[in-house]
């Protein structure tokens, strides 16, 4: 019996020991990640990374700047403001859930110790609605984007500062899961997120320039010409997964929330500039 157990115990020790020994801290990851992009794009100023592909695509940028003169997301901001100010059926407002609102975008995503999960802004909005007897909004398309657009607009200029609290190992676990997701090859085409947006950022895929991962999270919700409307970050995740021919995960499910947690953390220090406009 003991003879049989010993190799198992040894194997377990090696298995559990290895990742511990090789795992970098989030702070180390952050430095490595950001330095990688600074080195890859030495001419791009730090704040410029918040402009995504337009930081590295001078031709696309001209078009984009023209679009930003009359932003297509503007009506959504206005609609979101109405939503923010309108009372729920019970007479309460969003403000009762978010006393610091509406400029609260930089507070998310955040680790919620009581719930033991990453809470994103769209999730917090629906939690608020449910607590006040309102129907939750859909997470990819529709009205939630208007409210998010208003909040994002009010939060412009705030800086990304995601915190991975040290007092709860589950927060680090969620971060690690999101990180693993980012570098995992998926789908029939066998792409990881990093294949396109780290390894080949700045390269052309057909006639499109691949945007750098750094800055991916600063400008949501985003009006995409391809969508003809404003959509959420998780809608974009869904699209990316489909493009590599993987089955997408649920918007606001654990995988995408953890992914958002990791990816937003990687952009720590960049200014928030949502809502955005993209091709």
């Amino acid at each position: 019996m003991r003879q049989k157990l010993l190799p198992i115990i040894t194997a377990l020790a090696i298995l559990s020991g290895l990742p511990m020994a090789s795992a970098a801290s989030p702070e180390q990851d952050l430095k490595k990640f950001q330095n990688y992009f600074k080195k890859k794009f030495p001419k791009v100023k730090w704040e410029e990374f918040a402009n995504g592909v337009y930081a590295v695509d001078p031709i696309g940028r001209e078009n984009w700047e023209a679009i930003e003169e009359f932003p297509p997301y503007e009506p959504f901001i206005d609609e979101g403001e109405e939503m923010w100010n309108k009372a729920f059926a019970n007479g309460k407002h969003y403000k009762d859930c978010f006393p610091d609102g509406p400029a609260i975008a930089a507070k998310y995503p955040r680790w919620d110790k009581a719930k033991g999960m990453v809470v994103t802004l769209p999730l917090a909005i629906n939690n608020c609605r449910k607590a006040n007897g309102e129907k939750p909004l859909k997470y990819k398309k529709g009205k939630i984007n208007s409210l998010l657009a208003y909040i994002a607009f009010q939060s412009r200029g705030q800086k990304t500062h995601v915190v991975i609290p040290k007092d709860d190992p589950r927060a680090l676990e969620a971060y690690e899961k999101g990180k693993k997701f980012y570098f995992t090859k998926r789908g029939q085409l066998n792409f990881s997120c990093a294949n396109c947006h780290v390894q080949n950022a700045g390269n052309k895929i057909r006639s499109d320039i691949l945007s750098p991962a750094l800055g991916h999270t600063t400008h949501w919700p985003t009006y995409r010409s391809k969508w003809g409307t404003v959509g959420t970050l998780h809608r974009r995740f869904t699209g990316c997964n489909k493009q590599v021919r993987a089955k997408p995960f649920k918007a606001q499910g654990e995988q995408y929330r953890d992914l958002e947690y990791f990816l937003t953390y990687m952009s720590n220090g960049l200014p928030l500039n949502g809502p955005g406009a993209r091709k």
Binding site: A24, K32, K179, K180, F183, K185
Partner: peptide, 8 residues
């Protein structure tokens, strides 16, 4: 096999 250090 998937890991950040393979890419960075």
């Amino acid at each position: 096999s998937a890991s950040m250090s393979l890419y960075i």
